[in-house]
Amino acid sequence: MTLTSKLVVSLDSTLTSALDLAQGSVPLRLREVLALADGTGAGRADKIFSDRRTLAASGTESLDLAGGLTDAFGNVITFARIKALLIVAATGNTNNVVVGGAASNGFATPFGDATDKLVLRPGGLCLLTTGPADATAYAVTAATGDLLQVANSGSGTGVTYDIVLIGASA
Rank of each mutant, 00 (worst) to 15 (best):
V33T: 14
Y161G: 05
G123V: 05
D116G: 13
G158M: 01
E61H: 03
L21N: 15
R31Y: 07
N75M: 08
L55K: 00
G68Q: 02
S169C: 00
S58W: 10
A108W: 10
V88K: 08
N75C: 07
M1D: 11
V9L: 09
L69K: 01
R31M: 02
V8D: 07
G68R: 02
L34Q: 10
T91K: 08
L28M: 12
T94I: 10
T144I: 08
P122N: 00
D134H: 06
G67M: 01
S153K: 01
A84D: 11
G167S: 04
A103T: 14
G145F: 09
A89L: 06
A151I: 07
T4G: 07
T54K: 01
L63V: 05
G131L: 09
N96S: 11
F79G: 03
K47C: 13
A108T: 13
N75S: 11
S50W: 09
S25E: 15
P110F: 00
S153C: 01
T109L: 05
V99K: 00
Q149A: 12
V150L: 02
T129L: 05
D38V: 00
F79K: 01
D146F: 05
S169R: 01
S50C: 02
G124N: 14
E32N: 09
L165D: 02
R81V: 12
Y138V: 02
R44H: 10
V98E: 03
A90I: 00
L69G: 05
A170M: 04
V8S: 12
A45G: 09
S104A: 13
N105S: 14
S169A: 10
P27V: 05
L128H: 04
S13H: 15
D20R: 14
A37R: 08
S5T: 10
G24Y: 06
I163N: 00
A103G: 14
F73Y: 11
G106T: 08
D20Q: 15
L125H: 13
T40N: 10
V8N: 11
Y138H: 07
V26T: 12
G68W: 04
C126M: 15
L147E: 06
A56G: 11
A42V: 07
